[in-house]
């Protein structure tokens, strides 16, 4: 592999990020910033959450549960349940970066990885050679992460300074993003899990408000796992 190849891959990664991925990341993270402001985080805690967690569902779940007064263990369990997806994603993606990457390099790429970057790396148009592929992924994800950090702060400051109606619109972004994400599943077993989680949340919430997310998730997910197996393949 040569230097120009790496440079071309780096530029390619930045160019691929600068489009719909950055709009999605910017919108989602400004919603999180607004939420963080609403529940009393400081601005730098909000930005730290984006950079250190780098997973919108875990961030919003944690912020929501913290605001509702949930226990730290319950928050960590809920965050871990939503973030488990990174495990199979890392297992599938990291080998394509070559065998000469050490554990530290692998863990770094695994931290930079997001659902969006993962989906992009599965496309045929990205570099397939390990070296340029790694450069492409680094450039793509670091671009997204930088914009995410700025958007978090912008959403945070926006929630503080914008007229109230606009600030409320920013807060709604979180729910709207997850709705389209969940609706986009073409797998009917996953849609069953979504329906069960939504239906179970309300009744559980009236009895055990602090545990409603984790319980609705585990019970809904398990029911869909046990009874929805024949729905697994897309219609």
């Amino acid at each position: 592999m040569t230097r120009p190849e790496i440079r071309a891959a780096t530029l390619g990664g930045i160019r691929a990020a600068a489009g719909v991925p950055l709009l999605l990341v910017g919108g989602g993270m400004s919603g999180f910033g607004a939420l963080a402001h609403d529940i009393g985080f400081t601005g730098w805690e909000a930005v730290l959450a984006t950079v250190a967690v780098w997973a919108l569902p875990a961030q919003v779940v944690a912020a929501e549960m913290h605001a509702a007064g949930a226990d730290l263990t319950a928050i960590a369990i809920a965050a871990a349940l939503t973030s488990m997806r990174f495990f199979p994603m890392a297992v599938a993606l990291l080998p394509t970066f070559g065998s000469d990457v050490g554990p530290l390099g692998r863990i770094t790429q695994a931290h930079l990885m997001s659902a969006t970057s993962w989906a992009f790396m599965m496309r045929a148009s990205v570099p397939q050679d390990p070296g340029p592929r790694r450069a492409y992924h680094s450039a793509f994800t670091i671009t997204c992460l930088s914009v995410a950090a700025i958007a978090t702060l912008a959403g945070y400051l926006g929630a503080a300074a914008l007229p109230a109606p606009l600030a409320l619109g920013l807060l709604f972004l979180n729910a709207a993003f997850f709705m389209v994400l969940l609706a986009d599943s073409r797998n009917r077993q996953a849609l069953l899990a979504v329906a069960l989680g939504a239906l179970l949340c309300w009744p559980i919430h009236t009895v055990l408000p602090e545990a409603s997310l984790v319980l609705a998730g585990v019970v809904g997910g398990t029911l869909a796992f046990v009874f929805g197996n024949r729905l697994r393949h897309p219609a």
Binding site: A67, T82, F172, L182, A193, H205, L213, V219, A224
Partner: peptide, 24 residues
């Protein structure tokens, strides 16, 4: 199982964010 559980949990999160909001 984890994937399905995280889908159900996120759906519950949407219900809580929209139906049972704690903040503004």
């Amino acid at each position: 199982w984890f994937t399905l559980t995280s889908y159900a949990l996120l759906a519950a999160l949407v219900v809580r964010l929209v139906g049972l909001p704690t903040g503004s």
